[in-house]
Design a protein around this nucleic acid. Structure first.
Lengths: 166, 166
DNA sequence: ATAGATGCAAATATTTTGCCGCCAG
DNA sequence: CTGGCGGCAAAATATTTGCATCTAT
């Protein structure tokens, strides 16, 4: 629980455009949603996050900025953001319990690829994925609004360590 | 929750290879796993299921066959099956709470496509999906063992009902 | 001023665990 | 016979809700 897994995947890229621009905050006010002190903090945390966070991590970071933020408020704000379609929810194949993870909804969907042994999570983008979603929309005549893909397996390093077993 | 009275019609469509023998049961005994009365029942339920089931549905169906099956046992057996890689776990984008759903691991992965309005869930297979997984394996030099893709949106019928707005 | 947000605690929901008697192999 | 398995209740986790108070607009 409390301790962040800190698996720092090699998410090297995707640096912060995160100045205090507050993309989320902008989106929210733009939609006429009331902005409170705590919401501002939580939104900032999400905007600055370099990777997906779970609720406890969000709380932890938020409290570093403003200790007067409560877990319940995090849940409520996350919920709001979900409903507004501004963040995505993942569970990383339940690798670490049934916790949920959240991240700001980027311009392009990415796949989360997790190593079942070391827990490292990487992101992956592919035109193939976009095509797949298009194919679904076409075949079912539906409008696709959200999608989530999580892939698990054993990463190169772990395969090496074990030889090739498992 | 559940309704589905149950026993599958023996005329129902079955997926390929599975004879009435119980593919799961075979796999389990083949791996030297102890077979108990309750496990047999749960495995049968999973084998006969025409679609993904949640734990309560599994329990319900199991108890129709043998009332002496407990929820805890369902959890433990499901867990065992997961570890053996014989079933897949889904959560259908949390469409209906944080319940998990399970289904036997077929020969080919399929995508779950859910309508966010009417809740209907369809399955989708695609060559593109296989290619995508291959691409991931190649790019990351990893061995992909599980994958889950869930897509949400609005199905043709629901789009019609609403006119076409949105 | 006032609708809506937050804090706090208690309620829910879901899954896991400890312990002990019982059954499959 | 014996070690794993299932039942039962209680614990652990994760998230939601009721209500009084406070605050952004």
């Amino acid at each position: 629980m409390g301790t962040a897994p800190s698996h720092r995947a090699s998410t090297g890229e995707r640096l912060n455009t995160a100045e205090t621009t507050g993309k989320l905050q902008q989106a929210m006010t733009g939609r006429g949603i009331r902005m409170t002190r705590q919401r501002r903090v939580i939104l900032q945390v999400m905007d600055d996050a370099e990777q997906h966070l779970d609720v406890d991590q969000i709380l932890e970071r938020a409290q570093k900025i403003d200790s007067g933020v409560h877990l319940v408020t995090v849940y409520r704000t996350i919920d709001l953001l979900k409903k507004q379609g501004l963040i995505d929810e993942l569970d990383l194949l339940h690798l670490r319990g049934d916790r949920h993870y959240y991240e700001t909804h980027g311009p392009r969907d990415h796949i989360h690829v997790a190593c079942l042994r070391c827990g490292k999570v990487r992101e992956f983008e592919s035109r193939l994925y976009e095509q797949l979603k298009e194919q679904i929309a076409r075949d079912f005549h539906m409008k696709v609004t959200v999608s989530r893909t999580e892939v698990g397996g054993y990463c190169a390093e772990c395969l090496q360590k074990k030889g090739s077993g498992e």
